[in-house]
């Protein structure tokens, strides 16, 4: 399955997903409450140390930052201009720390484990009418539908190409939309026909 997980056996990998998410939320909120450059720098160092404990390489730390490097540089320049150097460094370091912390959770937790703990965590919402089994069904269906939709789009594109219409967005989007709705109705009938009652 498409996943950003990086396998390992560290203590961080073994922590339950719920604990990791909670710790991240607390840490992230804490970072927004402090307005002190020193504390943020210490937090950044601590998060990088956690990557080390999780057995992740420096490249993986860098990979978390690289896609947003330009955003960070842009914000650094903007803040420097608006509010001066120390505020600029503070904002960018805080943002980098938050990104690394979130990346750590994503890298050390399987998406399937995360989904599972999410579904079981939803038990508490039962009194509000949330049925965890139905949420689980929706999640599995959604993940299965993504490649199917890509497949439908390819087929419709080829069919419209034969008509010289492959560049018309509406001529491609409309049959795709109708086919996917038809598919959804068929699947829903098939599920009902098998007596699915979670």
């Amino acid at each position: 399955m498409l996943d950003l997980y990086s396998p390992g056996h560290s203590p961080i990998h073994k922590l339950s997903p719920g604990v990791k998410i909670l710790a991240m939320m607390v840490g992230g909120t804490g970072l927004f409450l402090v307005e002190n450059l020193g504390i943020v720098a210490v937090a950044l160092a601590a998060v990088i140390a956690l990557y080390k404990i999780a057995g992740l390489s420096a490249t993986q730390v860098w990979n978390q930052i690289r896609p947003v490097l330009w955003i960070l540089i842009f914000f650094l320049g903007l803040q420097w201009w608006l509010a001066g150097a120390s505020v600029a460094v503070f904002v960018v370091l805080r943002l980098a720390t938050l990104l690394l912390l979130a990346g750590l959770v994503t890298l050390t937790t399987r998406a399937s484990d995360m989904i599972e703990s999410l579904t079981s965590g939803l038990r508490f919402l039962r009194p509000l009418g949330v049925n965890p089994a139905k949420v689980g069904l929706a999640i599995s269906l959604a993940l299965r539908f993504i490649p199917v939709l890509a497949q439908i789009t390819t087929e419709v594109r080829e069919a419209q190409k034969a008509r010289g219409m492959e560049h018309s967005i509406v001529a491609v989007a409309m049959p795709v939309a109708i086919r996917m709705l038809k598919m959804a109705d068929d699947i829903s009938d098939a599920i009902d026909a098998r007596g699915y009652r979670p």
Binding site: A138, L143, R144
Partner: peptide, 18 residues
């Protein structure tokens, strides 16, 4: 919630992803 709604929810989540 009926099955059709569940399937539609999954479908439009998948559409946004696709």
């Amino acid at each position: 919630m009926d099955t059709k709604s569940i399937v539609y929810i999954a479908l439009f989540a998948a559409l946004t992803a696709a």
